[in-house]
Design a protein around this nucleic acid. Structure first.
Length: 169
DNA sequence: CCAGACGTTGTT
DNA sequence: GTCTGG
DNA sequence: CCAGACGTTGTT
DNA sequence: GTCTGG
């Protein structure tokens, strides 16, 4: 299973392997994603956080974003299977949406975050378009946003905890 | 029709 | 596979 | 933007 | 460090 969705119709696996994000706003219409979306090739991509860069002039500072009190959550993903004579390749992509209030401090986009069982099941199982679209909105819970000295450093290196925003909605 | 694209990000 | 642009 | 490469040889 | 590709 590899990150970077390869549409089932792709001529070769390499081209599609660059589709690492899908916009929530257009996922219904883009040829690369819509079948996966409609025909329930939806998936959960487990995560304990993600990184985003804040641009300040010429500098970009990496931040780690986590959900307070949640060791693990999930990104909303789509998958597909690409068949070739040599075998099948399964691949997936992550859906992005506009940033919520907290994330706007950092960046204008963010992954679609699912944080409880109910959402997981609905994302995977529902056939109702309205319900699906509702899921693909900016996360409404709290986020912890930590500056990171260097992204390449392991998270074990002391990571100053600076909570930019903790507003619940 | 038929070849070529099919995606996102941020920046200008 | 299906849509778009020329 | 940001991740990933950052090279040459000889062959087609 | 800097360029390239996506």
């Amino acid at each position: 299973m590899c990150w970077g969705l390869i549409p089932h119709w792709a001529k070769d696996a390499s081209r599609g392997s660059k589709l690492i994000n899908a916009r929530a706003e257009t996922v219904l219409t883009k040829p690369s994603f819509r079948d996966s979306f409609r025909f329930r090739r939806r998936c959960l991509v487990p995560a304990d956080g993600f990184y985003e860069w804040k641009r300040e002039g010429k500098k970009s500072t990496p931040y780690r974003i986590a959900l307070p009190g949640k060791e693990v959550f999930a990104f909303a993903g789509l998958w597909d299977r690409w068949d070739s004579p040599e075998g099948s390749v399964f691949s997936f992509t992550i859906i992005t949406t506009e940033a919520n209030e907290s994330m706007k401090e950092i960046h204008n986009r963010m992954p679609v975050i699912l944080s409880d069982e109910e959402e997981y099941i609905e994302w995977l199982e529902t056939g109702d378009l309205r319900a699906l679209k509702k899921i693909l909105r900016p996360y409404e819970g709290r986020l912890h946003i930590y500056p990171v000295s260097k992204l390449v450093n392991s998270p074990k290196n002391d990571m100053p905890e600076l909570i930019l925003e903790e507003t619940a909605r």
